[in-house]
Every structure is written in structure tokens, then in C-alpha cells.
Nucleic acid binder design. Structure first.
Lengths: 193, 193
DNA sequence: GTTACTTGTTAGTGAGTAGTAACATGCCAG
DNA sequence: CTGGCATGTTACTACTCACTAACAAGTAAC
């Protein structure tokens, strides 16, 4: 038999479901993905998904949170001991490199898009706050600079959704233009602080 | 009788449905909004929505396109005869002022989020390209500057989704920090062009 | 090898879904 | 005032959905 079909521990199964659900939710979002689809890809019954996660929304929130944590963790790691603009530069390169695996970027986007559900909104607020905090703390730079950095990240999420990699037009090239992080700090806020 | 219930022309009805659908799709997205909901709010039967728009996806695409056009048009109008940074500054103020009416911003977001559907993706690519073109043409500034400007726009969309207006924490204040557009041009691309 | 427990399935519910076809209603031109 | 057309509804289909309860199967300890 090709299918081994042994029993997993609940934790292993949860991890597997989270992985599958991440890919599906990234494309379909909260409402465009069915628990049946996720269950089928994990080769279990749909009922068991509910036993392990309680509800579809709860699963979605976990998946989105993990995506944020993955990105935030990767940036913190990339910065290492560096601070200031050097840290920001390292973070930027990491974030860019994640274009290869669009999943985490799309999950951020789906999190924002589903934020009209209060529980999702609260979770995403929290995750985004942590991401902001990480960038602010490790770089030690001004809020405006952090804002600029994250703004480019949000644009990157959207260009991942549009698959701009495949578009060869001037505007799409413009969106893909790399930013030189050394000059981030020249953006200043109106209220000089 | 309180309800007048006269017949409208198809064009009037279409306009009414588009208005209602905009509000609903802005919150629920393509898959989180039912045609039944839209029809009920427009006080017609759900079947008639299909007669006028063909499919839910077609209606969604029209709604998203109009949201992009609304924003793009408002920016072009705000710029007026101005060019360069003055035009960009005027545009930025307009975009910001739209935070009051979150609908158009959220619809952009929902358009990106539903872009795994090829028809949606193509439509949003097109709309976004037009927005890029408008900013690039009216300001005449470098691609990197246009990119920065639009990146802040994308962040604004997301902060509208999270209702950051209601959040009174440092990071949320940071996200709301206004950018001084005069210093946009100090962001440069890595590949000096 | 039986007990106790965890992992998993079967089978179903009730509600909601996008989309269709056939019919009704109001309105205007002649 | 009537014929024809545009506006709208009724009634339905075939299906999918999230979620539940009750039961089965594997596994580890003793």
C-alpha cells in the first residue's frame, strides 16, 4: 500500500492541518475556503478539523497569526545584532526574499481583508502591533521610518496577490523597484518630533 | 403607502445595486457577501441581480473597478494643474481625507484579496496600472517616488480595515503619522536610473 | 489481553448558496 | 386602448456549507 495511514499525535495532525490551511486560506481567504477542502488535502475527515480547532474562524486566525510571526521572526533574525539603518536594510532584504513563498504575504492580506469580523480584526491588530514593535525596537528608528518600511511591505503583499512577477509593463517594473534603505530616514513626518 | 415601489430604468437600478453592493463587498469581500444580502438591501429579488449583472463575480469586479476609478479620479482632480511634488502633496491629502469613507479603500483591499480568481486579478491589475499611470503622469516624478506614494496608500487601506482610528496605542499613532510629501523624493532606488 | 485513552470516522442537520426558467406586471407608442 | 417591450417576481434546482453527536479503531500500560 502506498498510503501508510497511521495515526498521528494530535499535535502532529494540528501542524499538518495548519500547513495545508495556510496554503488554502492564502488563496481563498476566510470565506473562500471550505473546511472540506482543507480536510481533503490533509487526508482526514472534515469533522476532525472541528475537533482539533473548534471552528473555521479559529483555524483561520491561528494560520494568520503564524504567518505574521513567521515574517516578524524572520526579520528579527535577519537584523541580528545590527541596529538602525543597517538592521532595516537587512530586514528589507529578508522581506523581499519572501516573494518566492507568497503564502505568508497573502495570509497577511487575507487577515486584513477579513477584519470586518471582530475576532479577526483584534487578532490582526495584535499581530501587526507586534510586527511594528519588532521593527521599531530592533532598529530604534523614528515612527515615520518604521511606517515607511511597513508601507512597502503592504505594497509587496498586494503585488504578490497580483502576481506582478509575471507582468512585464513599465508600471509593474516600477512597483518592483528596490528601495535603497539608507535613504529611508529622509522621509519625515509633518509634526516634527 | 410608505413604499412607493415604482419601476426604475435598468440604469437607475444598476446604479442603486452598485451602491449597495459596494458597501457589502467592502466588508465581506467577494466570497463573504451573498447576492441575497445585496438584493434585500436594494429591495429587489436576488434573481434580478443576475439579470442585470450576469454573475456575482461580474458585479464584484464592476464595484472594485469603480472604487479604483473613484480614488484615481479624486487624486487627478485634487492635483489640478499642479505637477511634481505639489501635485503629489495635493493627492496625498485627498487620499487621506477618504479615511472618512472607508468603502473605496476597503474595496481596493478586497480586490487584491480576491485576486486568486483570474478575472478579478486581471481587472485589479488594470485598475492599479491606471492609478499608477495617473500618479506618474500628473506628477512627472520618478517611479520610486510613485511607488512610495502608492505604498502609503496600501498601508492606509489596511489601517482602514483594522479601524485604527479607534486604537490609541503608540504603534497605531505611528501608523497614522502624516508624511511630509516634500521629502518623498529623497527615497531613491538602488539601481540609479 | 483487557482497560483506559486518544485518534479518527460515519452520518446527519438545517441553513444558505449562485444561478435559471418561466411567468407577471407596469409603462409607453401608436 | 391595446400590443409590445422593459422591468421585475415566483418558484425552483442542485449543491455546498459549517458544525454536531454518536460511534469505531488504534495504541499504550499493566
Amino acid at each position: 500500500m502506498a498510503t501508510v495511514s497511521k495515526k498521528m499525535t494530535a499535535d502532529e495532525r494540528r501542524a499538518q492541518i495548519l500547513a495545508v490551511a495556510a496554503e488554502e486560506f492564502a488563496l481563498g481567504g476566510l470565506h473562500g475556503t471550505s473546511t472540506e477542502t482543507i480536510a481533503r488535502r490533509a487526508e482526514i475527515t472534515q469533522a476532525y478539523v472541528f475537533r482539533l480547532f473548534g471552528s473555521k474562524k479559529a483555524l483561520f486566525i491561528q494560520v494568520v497569526q503564524r504567518a505574521f510571526e513567521q515574517l516578524t521572526g524572520a526579520m528579527r533574525e535577519a537584523a541580528g545584532d545590527r541596529t538602525g539603518l543597517e538592521a532595516l536594510s537587512a530586514m528589507g532584504l529578508t522581506y523581499d526574499s519572501l516573494l518566492g513563498d507568497r503564502t505568508a504575504l497573502l495570509l497577511q492580506l487575507q487577515g486584513f481583508a477579513a477584519a470586518s469580523e471582530p475576532e479577526v480584526r483584534d487578532a490582526v491588530r495584535d499581530s501587526f502591533a507586534r510586527m511594528w514593535g519588532t521593527v521599531a525596537d530592533t532598529t530604534g528608528l523614528e515612527p515615520v521610518t518604521v511606517k515607511s518600511f511597513l508601507a512597502f511591505g503592504m505594497l509587496l503583499n498586494n503585488s504578490a496577490a497580483l502576481e506582478l512577477r509575471d507582468v512585464d509593463e513599465p508600471w509593474a517594473l516600477g512597483v518592483r523597484t528596490r528601495i535603497q534603505p539608507g535613504l529611508f530616514t529622509h522621509i519625515t513626518s509633518e509634526t516634527n518630533q
